[in-house]
Simulated assay, not measured.
Amino acid sequence: MTSATSPPRPPMSVRIGQRVIQLPTLAGLLIAWVLLFGELSVNTVVSGLLVGLLVMLVFPLPPLDSGFRIHPRATLFFLVRFVVDMAQATVRVLATAFSFGRIPHSSVIAVPLRTQSDLLFTLTAVCVSVIPGSVIVEVRSATHTLFVHVLGAGAEDVEQARADVLRLEERVVRAFGSRGEIERLASTGGTS
């Protein structure tokens, strides 16, 4: 029961005195602790919980909401399509590498993303850079713009490469974004 002066407790948290302990943050600290020690034992878990609680009590954080949600069907579609994109890109890179006597074209393109979430922006950038033949050369987080070097993309292929990045962003947002991010995507031209 909270008093009229205390702020509401964020979801998945417990109150210890005046401090709010966010359980996902505590779980993250515990996982980091276990990974640092390299063994999963009762002593490691208990000491990790105690150290995590101590850190959160001594250095309180404001309530965090990452905006990260998992939408099962969209996540499955994202994963399947990501594997297909990886396979297709691998074949294109191999074809470019073994096309002797032909100079491969490449372009650096600017792609302003539609998401306003730093987490989804970062996830999209990671996915783009993992796909063979594309490398992030610059990121402007203030404008949520990716500058991508695309192998095999001449002047005529630039718009197709930009559209590919935007489709990847859309799949990321639909798989992991909040309802607000999905609605923002739809209002700025994302497909349904």
Score class of each variant (00 low, 15 high):
V128N: 13
T188I: 05
A186P: 06
T75D: 02
T25M: 15
V20Q: 02
L61C: 07
R179C: 06
A142V: 13
R162G: 02
Q160C: 10
V158Q: 05
T96R: 13
T145M: 03
E156A: 15
R9C: 09
S99M: 12
V173N: 03
L79V: 15
I31P: 07
V126T: 08
V83A: 03
T44R: 13
F147H: 13
G177I: 02
M56C: 03
F100G: 04
A155S: 14
G154K: 09
V51G: 00
L123N: 01
L26V: 04
A110H: 01
F98G: 07
W33V: 02
P7F: 12
T90C: 11
L29K: 04
E181N: 04
G67F: 12
E170Y: 06
R114K: 11
L166K: 11
G67T: 06
S187T: 15
I131E: 00
G152K: 06
F82T: 10
R19H: 08
V158M: 09
D157M: 12
R140F: 10
S141C: 11
L146S: 04
F68P: 06
F176N: 08
P60Y: 03
S41G: 07
A110M: 00
V14P: 00
L79E: 06
P11E: 13
V150H: 08
L113E: 03
A163K: 08
Q88G: 10
F59W: 15
G52V: 01
L26Y: 03
L30V: 15
E183T: 07
F98E: 11
T96G: 12
E159G: 03
P104F: 02
A74N: 13
V137C: 04
F98P: 10
V148D: 05
S117D: 03
T2A: 02
I21N: 00
G190A: 09
I103L: 14
L94D: 06
R69T: 09
T5A: 09
F78E: 05
T145N: 01
G67K: 11
P62Y: 10
I182Q: 08
M1T: 02
H144D: 04
V111P: 05
P63D: 09
G154I: 09
R69Y: 14
T124P: 00
F121A: 02
G177A: 06
P10H: 07
A4I: 12
D118N: 10
F176A: 02
H71Y: 09
P104E: 05
R19Q: 05
R162T: 14
L94K: 04
G48E: 00
V172P: 01
P10Q: 06
A97T: 14
T5V: 14
G154H: 08
Q116Y: 11
T44N: 12
Q88D: 09
R179A: 14
S129W: 08
V14Q: 00
V14L: 01
F68I: 01
P72V: 13
V55K: 03
G28K: 09
S66C: 10
V148L: 10
C127M: 15
G48C: 01
R102T: 14
F59S: 07
F78C: 05
G190Y: 07
V173Q: 01
E183L: 13
A87Q: 09
T96L: 15
D164Y: 07
Q160T: 14
P10E: 04
F59L: 12
T145Y: 07
R184V: 00
R114T: 14
F82E: 05
D85Q: 12
V34F: 12
P8D: 12
G48M: 00
